[in-house]
Nucleic acid binder design. Structure first.
Lengths: 183, 183
DNA sequence: CATCTGTTTCAGAAATTTCTGAAATAGCCA
DNA sequence: TGGCTATTTCAGAAATTTCTGAAACAGATG
């Protein structure tokens, strides 16, 4: 398992970025390696490629699977497990956003609802602040749900509209305003 | 400095979430405390409220300032610094997104461009994968630039459109397709 | 069932991050 | 200037996370 300079550099970079993304160096590196590899790789190849321990590879792959970021494949006549990343980058982005939401947003939404459940605390400012935050997060998660449902084609259309988006919204039928958000 | 149950609970939660958000427990807690407090607080009050060391408070505030997440105020006749979070939640979200992009996306975009600069490596699959990823990130960051420019009012309109967004896009003038992305 | 290949688990080692107390710094005021 | 208050810095302590090697586990095959 020899890596090209490009692979080396890309893998090193992803390892470092891993920190900022809430996954550790090794996990980032494993992902990077799989991302650049046309062929699925098995654990042994990953271990050799990254010069890490076999058990570390195992744990890293487990972590990546918990994020739904890798696919596991088996090859006929080969008992080893092989791993890849999806070909479609949009699918990757969708997964990433969905998982981050699950880990970083949803628990807070749950907590905020729980806090509100208990009723007013006497600290009006804090109560209002929490309600406002909950509403904002709800709006954003609903929007995300909507984007999830959209075809990739549509998403691309939306994202490449640029300045046109503003004028399109002008023409949109005025809607009933339901938000109490951001007084 | 006595905290209500609500504050306690919220602060504890933010402390734990801090991990997942790439900031540490203390920083999360400081932010939570400021978020719920109507009045700006000084470092001494934060230290007492969270039962942490004075120096830890200082470092936490520095970190929050590097994220542009807190405002520093001075009070007439008081030499101490006071801190708050912005009242407008949308402003907070904008800041958060902008900062995360700066830390989590931009460095990778730079790296990808650098790798492409060096020219083809012989590994066609990897080269293509990198180009594709760069294009995707460019599309997304351009979209983000566009959203940044938008009025909050507009953003809310967009986010609350729900199912209507699809039909609106139907009516949008067809655009020249520039993307080579997602083959 | 004994053996062989491949994977996972896990206790402790190693590395990294976070936190503290003490000392340094900074600016105000008499 | 010297004393006072407020803040920051920083070396090392404490806590946490990551990584490894050894052992346990799983399941195919002869």
């Amino acid at each position: 398992m020899t890596l090209t300079d490009l692979q080396q550099d890309f893998i090193l970079h992803f390892g470092e970025m891993g920190n900022r993304w809430g996954i550790n160096r090794t996990v980032g590196q494993i992902y990077a390696l799989l991302f650049l590899s046309e062929e699925p790789l098995n654990a042994e190849q990953i271990t050799a490629g990254l010069s890490i321990s076999r058990s570390n590879t195992s744990m890293g792959l487990k972590e990546l699977q918990s994020w739904n970021l890798v696919r596991q494949r088996s090859r006929p006549g080969d008992r080893r497990d092989y791993f890849t990343t999806p070909d479609d980058l949009w699918e990757i982005v969708r997964t990433l956003v969905a998982e981050r939401r699950k880990r970083e947003i949803d628990p807070t939404l749950t907590k905020l609802r729980e806090l509100e459940m208990r009723g007013p605390t006497g600290d009006e400012y804090a109560d209002a602040r929490i309600a406002e935050l909950r509403e904002l997060i709800e709006m954003m998660t609903q929007f995300h749900d909507e984007m999830e449902r959209m075809e990739t084609e549509r998403l691309v259309q939306l994202m490449t509209m640029g300045r046109k988006l503003g004028s399109l919204l002008d023409k949109a039928p005025k809607m009933k305003i339901w938000r109490k958000t951001t007084t």
